[in-house]
Amino acid sequence: MGNKHENIIQLLPWFVNDSLGSKEQALVLSHLSDCQVCQAERDRLQEFQSLVQDYDEPLSDYRFSFKKLMGRIEAAEKNKESTRDLEGARKSRWLPLGLAASVSFVAVIAWLLMQNISPGNSDEYTTHTTVTMAGGDTARLALTFTQPIRAQTMRHALVETNSYIVSGPDQAGAYIVDIQVPDQLSETQFIDFIRKIDGVENATLINR
């Protein structure tokens, strides 16, 4: 009973404004028929509601406010348009430059490829691909080793390649090493062979 009464009394404002759903409304009506406290409360709430509804505050003319708002909307729309124009202008200004840059980039890449593919055009390239090294020749290389490298691994690498250290290490950690070419190999094959040795990080052929 107590809980029901509390629930009903909580619902009374919305019973009075006629916004309760049909189930809740039926519940309130059934309770009201027996409960004088809730009846009195309902009457007070009805009176309060009519008081609230009767009291109307004076309103200013909507047209003036509407005009102000339309001014604001138009300003905002102009602002949006100019932002769009600005973005469009930015895009259209950068578009030709971007295109030009892209075309140039592609052209440069294509030119480089053409240069590299054409045989005999680049001394540097042909040095690594076509020049062969006779077995037993000595080649001078700059070698770097994976760090930290154990002395034993380094020694093993040197023994394996039948090479000896000319100087080093320099500030970059590179050793200048003379290595005996094991077989007839192109320079590229030779460099690949050296790089595969355990402990060798990098190998660069230097002028012989």
Partner: peptide, 10 residues
């Protein structure tokens, strides 16, 4: 206000 003037449900 929403209850008594506007007649809103809870």
């Amino acid at each position: 206000e929403l209850t008594y003037f506007f007649g809103y449900s809870y």
